[in-house]
Design a protein around this nucleic acid. Structure first.
Lengths: 272, 272
DNA sequence: CGTTCGATATCGCCT
DNA sequence: AGGCGATGTCGAACG
């Protein structure tokens, strides 16, 4: 069951390739993983391991069975059987390495005890600098190693974003209010760029902050910062209106809006 | 190469089990995936597929080779060979389903064209309500299916969090400033809960907002909301101090602090 | 349930 | 490289 199996898809311009080992010896797993990293394949390892992270924060995970994915762009993901988020990870830009250690005590230079340091271990590391951080996965057993090489040229088409909401307003400004005229998007202020800047039927300046979903107090504060900054920037006794555009607001955000003299218009990113 | 292989770890209290098919026929893949879901295993599928999401937003991904993970808690993840984040996903709480469709045109009820609708397809769906959303992965080819059953009882131990920063301040209040006395954590105000509430050596109320890392304008606004709310809550002519505690602040955040009469103390979550 | 806020947030854009 | 804001953010704590 530890003999390597390599197989290619029989049709298609760029055949996908999969290499799998089941219950390999740790040394064989090391070779397969090193080969997968070298070939820039997507490598997965399922096995019993401890996990240590050190960098922006520090973490330790005792021994358990987990699924590890190493990507050719340097990303690393450790998944348990629960949760959308990996229990540990490393962002793209890391250098992956793998090594076989006869005595687990040497797996880490300065780590605490692992599940059984006296047994041999296979250690995966993903390191980067800026910020300096490291993920180390130390396996006592490996149940499966796979290396996937495929082809994926396509990009995700997503709709229902804040950008869609902006397009809706620009194409039909009356959705904001009758007589509204957009003058600029991403208009720069000392506090940052305003989503949509324009003027109302009376010629007053209007700052519009867009949110694709129901908003809380943070969005109100954000809008307030822009209105404040623009009032100073126009340095007249400018009466600048601030309008929050979102599907809905929470109670507390609504009170904040009133408190700060800001307005709200209910609008969804798409017309459905 | 399409014969099923099931294997168990030979030692350990809770042996891990791995079932793998390589280049299975779609109908065989369907049975293996359904069995894995049924057994509450962690199921992975690598193959050529299109991906469609509809719910909080909508997205479509043309045909390519991707890695799909179905977790027993209902989470679903679609990974390409790039990026830390899945290109598509579904949170825990979904219901997974798998079906074999002779003609791909029936894979979706109302979908646009896929890579080749005339060929048979294997369709994975993960659905949930509140919010109502659905992820559909439609495979034209499957290169590998695996089902992993393991054991993982341990929890992550993490340090360097905001909670650590709070403990540091509570154990040694002089780190904030000489004479500071913490009176409460998570003190409730109309604007939300204050991280640390206390008084200085002159008996003035102090609101402390903690951040584990370098902060921008949002944290300053958050602190300002708390100070405002507390000044009203104490409804005296209360002079409430607001102190932001973080490793550092950006320039713009620093100007905002001055503008709002707030203070800053540089402190890291851990003593290193 | 909804609200609120933290996170090793990640990601993309722009300076 | 750092700042800044969006995200189908996710997740947890709390009401």
């Amino acid at each position: 069951m530890t003999s390597p199996s390599s197989s290619s898809s029989s049709s298609g311009a760029t055949p996908a390739r999969v290499d799998t080992l089941e219950h390999p010896a740790l040394a064989d797993a090391r070779d397969a993983i090193a080969d997968g990293i070298d070939r820039e394949a997507l490598v997965t390892v399922f096995g019993r391991c401890t996990v240590d992270y050190d960098g922006r924060a520090s973490s330790h995970l005792e021994s358990g069975d987990r699924h590890v994915m190493l990507k050719p762009d340097g990303a690393s993901l450790v998944h348990t059987d629960e949760g959308q988020q990996p229990v540990n990870w490393q962002p793209p830009g890391c250098e992956h390495s793998v090594r076989y250690v006869e005595s687990g005590a040497e797996a880490g230079d300065d780590d605490g005890p692992t599940d059984d340091p006296s047994t041999p271990r296979l250690v995966l590391e993903s390191d980067r600098s800026t910020p300096d951080e490291r993920l180390r996965v130390s396996f006592s057993r490996i149940f499966q190693v796979s290396a996937f090489a495929g082809s994926d040229e396509t990009e995700l088409a997503l709709s229902g974003t804040e950008e869609d909401l902006r397009q809706r307003i620009l194409e039909e400004p009356s959705l904001l209010e009758s007589g509204f005229t957009p003058l600029a998007t991403e208009r720069s202020t000392p506090a940052g760029a305003v989503d949509v800047y324009g003027e109302d039927s009376a010629g007053r300046a209007v700052v519009v902050e867009l949110k694709r979903r129901r908003v809380g107090p943070d969005a109100v504060s954000q809008l307030r910062r822009y209105v404040d900054a623009l009032e100073r920037d126009l340095h007249a006794d400018a009466d600048v209106r601030g309008v929050l555009v979102a599907p809905s607001v929470t109670d507390r955000a609504d009170r904040l809006l009133v408190e700060h003299g800001l307005e709200f218009v209910s609008l969804e990113p798409t017309a459905d």
